[in-house]
Design a protein around this nucleic acid. Structure first.
Lengths: 343, 343
DNA sequence: CTGAAAGCGCTAACAT
DNA sequence: ATGTTAGCGCTTTCAG
């Protein structure tokens, strides 16, 4: 029973400390430390008794004191954008990858009122052993400055690795994959909904153009700029529909744009994929919903984070920063099919 | 310039400490502490000099040491479900509310592989002054056990406040609002898509039934059970459409179900709101997207978190736990309109 | 296998 | 306004 500890907490007394446990168990303080950390150096009987006493007292080790005393904090800080599905996936993978290497994760969120710099600073104060920044909105200079203070890994931004490491997927290769898939289905009038001014959008657009040329479809290259939200894409799609001939397939720069397109298509009676094939980009959670089932380009988030953590550990152990570029893959679902009528 | 500090970090030396700053500035350590905390007790000239030296050295205060020394950690722990839009909103509000009271936020995520209990334990180790749990999947016993160790506030779950405080919106009142809105538009055949086995779904269903009775529409009460995903709702909607007469309006137990309905409606050529009015529940981010524009019940997340933080502070200052029930509100957007043909 | 002593970086309490 | 001393809870030596 947690009688004693509970009573203490309820009456506003301090939490039990290691010394309390040692006293109650009739052993020295360091011995309790040994038992709590699960390292060797205590007999089995002592270990059992100490653990039982600790449990009875409701003892919880103080992470602040532990990390202060240890040279390394065994903490990897992750800066992510709150509410972003792609970041949510990455954070989940971060927990898994860090745990495999004996590290804990310290989270710091970027929100409408909390900048990347603020988020990173709070982790710096916690003395994380390394920082992993998910697509941070910081320029190279700010990132370098940060990286001089702590090993830093930038995820999913195309940046020259300098004092920090970079891990990202090859965005050009991604849209090339998308176009190649549509070409193999028999499409020729393939348009691209391009993200205007969005990071990574340039590479995705270049990959689209390259793949069209490679397929001998130079004449059909058709780039429609759009904004970052579903609503922007819906508007662009609506304007596309005022044309004489619609494309038979659409490659969008991200899933949100693709979903905006799907929505408008449904409302206007355009059958996807019979009348129009759509390929998104990101393989975000909504894309995987069965009733959306969007064919899309996946960045392989587990591998992205596995590499990010590996790069962090490399830097912690003194190795120089470097860049890792991963290959995206095609997830074929239900929004692509051969065109009903060819050109 | 951060020359010295940077060089240190890059060559793997330790970070500068307060003692380093004191030495370089030619003052005592506590004086540096006074300056860094911005409290009174240092002359303006000293203050300026210390701050400049600290900046040159690239000094960042060590949060672990500070929190260890202080009796209170000035930290409020928040346990949230990663990737849940409602939780994302709440966390964002938590940052704002905590900052107003001089508290920082320590985040701990619940994921597919990380339970509420694990998430809470890691915050316990950080010695947070209080914990705020967002719709935790823990039973009353587990919550009580936790609350004996640290002031605890449970958000958005209907639970008898015991050793912990509870803040939630009135779910019955929410669906009553939804039905009343539809009735005022002239609807009578109003069905409810009910969440099977989901927390809060019972109250929402009860509120629907109550409001129907209050409007004298007992005969039209029509409760269709469904699952928790958009796809579940889409299936339920499809089966609803095999009936002779469709309802003219639908109240769903959450936004995800509503969005599943909207999707199927668009695909089957049912015009929302002309043929069918739809009211969701939660006012989640997707509901607010302009191309969805879902009429829905809002829980007022800023107020929910404002109350949660207030309840946490109350408990920290020794007051007993209690319950706060907030009133939800109706957000009228574009998925509701008068019925085209009445019964 | 166990215990005594020192110290991580900081702040609170007391001096001056 | 500034300096001195002590100690937060833990882990790490180093002696037994």
């Amino acid at each position: 029973m947690a009688g004693d500890g509970a009573a203490r907490a309820r009456t506003g007394q301090r939490n039990p400390t290691m010394a309390d446990v040692a006293r109650a168990a009739g052993v020295s303080r360091p011995l309790v430390s040994i038992v709590m950390r699960g390292v060797s150096g205590a007999s089995e009987s002592t270990r059992r008794r100490v653990l039982q006493v600790a449990d009875e007292l409701g003892y919880v080790p103080d992470a602040r004191a532990r990390k202060l005393r240890q040279s390394r904090s065994a903490l990897i800080g992750v800066v992510f954008r709150l509410g972003d599905p792609f970041h949510s996936d990455l954070v989940e993978d971060a927990y898994a990858s860090c745990a495999r290497h004996g590290y804990e994760v310290a989270l710091s969120a970027v929100t409408g009122t909390r900048s990347d710099a603020e988020a990173a600073l709070s982790l710096l104060k916690e003395r994380c052993d390394a920082l992993i920044l998910l697509a941070p909105a910081l320029d190279a200079g700010e990132l370098s400055h940060l990286a001089e203070q702590v090993p830093t890994v930038v995820v999913s931004r195309k940046l020259e690795p300098a004092s920090f490491s970079v891990v990202r997927a090859d965005d050009r290769a991604g849209t090339e994959l998308a176009v190649a898939h549509l070409v193999s289905l028999g499409h020729r009038r393939i348009a691209h909904l391009a993200g205007a001014g969005v990071v990574a959008a340039d590479d995705r657009e270049a990959g689209y153009a390259q793949a069209m040329r490679d397929a001998g479809l130079d004449a059909w290259i058709d780039i429609v700029p759009t904004g970052i939200t579903e609503a922007d894409a819906a508007r662009s799609m609506a304007s596309l529909m005022t044309r004489d001939r619609l494309p038979t397939a659409l490659v969008t720069f991200n899933d949100r744009a693709a979903i905006g397109v799907l929505d408008i298509a449904a409302r206007r009676g355009i059958d996807v994929p019979a009348d129009l094939s759509v390929v998104g980009y990101d393989d975000s959670r909504p894309a995987r919903l069965p009733y959306i089932a969007l064919t899309t380009i996946a960045q392989n988030t587990p591998e992205l984070m596995r590499e990010a953590v590996a790069l962090a550990l490399e830097q912690i152990s003194g190795q120089p920063p470097r860049e890792v570029v991963l290959h995206p893959s095609l997830e074929i679902r239900e929004t692509t099919a051969p065109p009903q009528v060819d050109v």
